[in-house]
Amino acid sequence: MADAGTASAILATEGLTRRFGGLVAVRDVSLTLNRGELHAVIGPNGAGKTTLVGLLAGELRPSAGRIVLDGADIGGVPAWKRTHLGIGRSFQRTNIFPTLPALENVRLAAQAVARGANLLRPAASDTKLVETAQAALARVGLSGVAARVAGTLSNGEQRQLEIAMTLAAHPKVLLLDEPLAGMGPEEGQRLTGLLKDLVREHAILLIEHDMDFVFAVADRMTVMAEGTVLAQGRPDDIRANREVQDAYLGGHA
């Protein structure tokens, strides 16, 4: 099972549980995310993956269990503060500022974590934030559309913009909730390369449906079903796991 090298663990959950009334969406989930590792969480619809991201990002409060970031329990920290602690997330459903230019979308993300910025200073004169934003856009390959109003970008471009916004805050931990959804095959390939590149500097928790993609990029995996952890391990172990095959992978193995 999990070869949790606690020394390099940056984010961990212990017995994390979230109930909605009588429904237990996430039950007793313990997982460890190590530095420099891409940890994929897979599972059928309704397995509790997005709830798990909501708990880690701070949009939901745990009903029980702990979330530990760099040794500190952050279960009660509100979402906006977690960004400042180094957790960045992208959304499953594109969540951007559609009426603002792409560059401004990312610039706002950079501004959110800028320390000591004089808020009354004209935004146009703060070149550092603009440069950070441009760098993040370049990283996901959107430099060419920086000036375009975000709502007019293609679906795939908006997904990439979403990731650029997350990167601009220089997070330690990246929570990516189905980043591939809505992307074309070419953009998907590009994302694969980007993730392999990003994982050198970040710890990445990836939620994804596309199995080929997951097995191509993941270092470790957690398989969830009905809110609980079904299996954890390396992609090869998961592929070989009989229980997982029955429950989820089907013809894929």
Binding site: A57, E59, A79, W80, K81, R82, T83, H84, R89, F91, N95, I96, F97, P98, T99, L100, E104, R107, L108, A109, Q111, A112, V113, L119, A123, M165, A169
Partner: peptide, 17 residues
Amino acid sequence: RVLEGIRVNEHRMAALG
């Protein structure tokens, strides 16, 4: 700019920090 961001998408602003 923050106020503008809040007007367009407050939820996202909170998620941005």
